[in-house]
């Protein structure tokens, strides 16, 4: 992608990026109760990085975020399959999830899920896949 020289966009992005990523993480974690989850959270994070790509060029972004997105995809798949297969060790069918309620001092009653770990896998896969697709096409001259 071409290097653009847009001061307003650049300064706005540096501010906004933080909020977009934060919001995407919120959307991801809230998924079990409110609209959101791994898919939307992952897409939104990817969208934030795409925005970064549009503002700067690929090389700069690669310096800021030196990540191999194919590995992110693999980690995501590993998370999803690992959480699912973990159930087999407890002699329950593949993909059985468990949850427990925990009472934390400040946050109050919170339920912890293995389903969240599975969703985290989805999140990583979506980020990895989207970024791999966009970057490969973008790098191709």
């Amino acid at each position: 992608m071409k290097k653009t020289n847009n001061i307003i966009l650049e300064s706005a992005i540096t501010l906004l990026l933080f909020f977009i990523v934060l919001f995407s993480v919120y959307i991801f974690t809230a998924g079990h109760y409110y609209p959101g989850g791994g898919f939307i959270g992952g897409l939104m994070t990817a969208g934030a990085i795409v925005l970064l790509l549009i503002t700067y060029d690929i090389k700069t972004v690669q310096q800021i975020l030196p990540v191999n997105y194919r590995i992110i995809t693999a980690i995501g798949l590993l998370f999803a399959i690992g959480t699912s297969a973990g159930a087999l060790f407890f002699d329950v069918p593949f993909l059985t999830h468990v949850f427990t309620h925990v009472d934390l001092p400040v946050l109050g009653d919170i339920s912890l899920h293995t389903a969240t770990l599975f969703d985290l896998g989805v999140y990583f896969v979506v980020v990895g896949v989207t970024m791999t697709i966009i970057l490969t096409i973008g790098e191709d001259e």
């Binding site: 998924g31 079990h32 109760y33 409110y34 609209p35 959101g36 989850g37 791994g38 898919f39 995501g76 798949l77 999803a80 399959i81 699912s84 993909l95 999830h97 949850f99 309620h101 339920s111 899920h113 389903a115 969240t116 599975f118 969703d119 896998g121 989805v122 896969v125 979506v126």
Partner: peptide, 24 residues
Amino acid sequence: AAGQNMVNVILVDFRGFDTLFEIT
């Protein structure tokens, strides 16, 4: 499943296999 968002619970829990294959 101790969730409130039915769509998300279906995706990650009740019909997790679909999602697993989908991300694959």
